[in-house]
């Protein structure tokens, strides 16, 4: 269950409390997030929508440990990440977060296999075990026949599948997807969303996704709107429960 009022205890997988993020642009201070609360349970699929500059990506970066808040706290699976050192946060990301980006962000000089293997290089797995994991991940996204292809040899949809395989290969606690269909045509976008939903249903993955596309957002269990740094409404009123969204 997803809530935005900060009213739940510590049982949520992701717990955000009083999150503030300010940026300084010249002499102007920009208050991107203002006292934001959020609770996400394991297995939830949440979509964040909102106009450009509303703070969607900033929120995703903060939850993913890529950025630090100005105030407030973020707790994931019992670990409060807001006070972690840079190096601890890096280790934490490797264990808990799978990132999927709009532009795929594959390393162009590495093959699909090598791109997917990257997160496993940070584990203690043997080479043989890494190979098994990579092959499994590529099989899940339907690209076992593209292991030796470089990103330039793949279509946009295939590149994004490789990126998803990279995100899930180390079995992270949750996936963060930033406009993952933003660079794809409708057909490819649908295929990618089918894949994400399958990951959620078959493997119980928790997914937090930023999107501008209402069609894509509909695939999520819950859609939250960010406006001027605050979660202001739920897109699926039928999912709203007392004090939160389901």
């Amino acid at each position: 269950m997803v809530r935005v009022d900060g009213g739940r205890g510590s049982s949520s997988l992701i717990q955000v409390r009083g999150l503030d993020k300010k940026y300084q642009r010249g002499s102007e201070e920009i208050h991107v997030l203002q006292g934001l609360n959020l609770d996400v349970d394991k297995g939830d699929f949440v979509a964040f929508m909102g106009p450009s500059g509303s703070g969607k990506t900033t929120l995703l970066n903060l939850i993913g440990g890529l950025d630090v808040p100005s105030a407030g706290s973020i707790t994931v699976a019992g670990d409060e990440i807001t006070h972690m050192s840079r190096s601890k946060l890096t280790e934490w990301r490797a264990r808990h977060v799978g990132f999927v980006f709009q532009m795929y962000n594959l390393i162009p000089v590495l093959t699909a296999f090598q791109n997917v293997e990257l997160p496993l290089l940070l584990t203690k797995l043997s080479k043989a075990d890494r190979r098994k994991h990579v092959e499994t991940a590529l099989a899940i996204v339907g690209l076992v026949d593209r292991t030796d292809h470089y990103p330039r040899q793949l279509s946009g949809g295939q590149e994004q599948r490789v990126a998803i395989a990279r995100a899930i290969v180390s079995d992270p606690t949750f996936l963060l997807c930033d406009e993952l269909t933003g660079d794809l045509d409708r057909k490819s976008a649908d295929e990618i969303m089918n894949l994400i939903q399958r990951l959620m249903k078959e493997f119980g993955k928790t997914v937090l996704m930023v999107t501008h596309d209402p069609v894509v957002a509909q695939r999520a269990d819950v859609t939250l709107h960010l406006e001027k740094g605050v979660l202001v409404e739920a897109a699926k009123p039928e999912g709203v429960t007392a004090g939160g969204l389901a």
């Binding site: 890096t90 280790e91 990132f99 962000n105 990257l118 990279r166």
Partner: peptide, 14 residues
Amino acid sequence: SREIATMRAIGFGA
């Protein structure tokens, strides 16, 4: 820079 940032995001240290 984006490749580097991606690897940092994945968990490779500075």
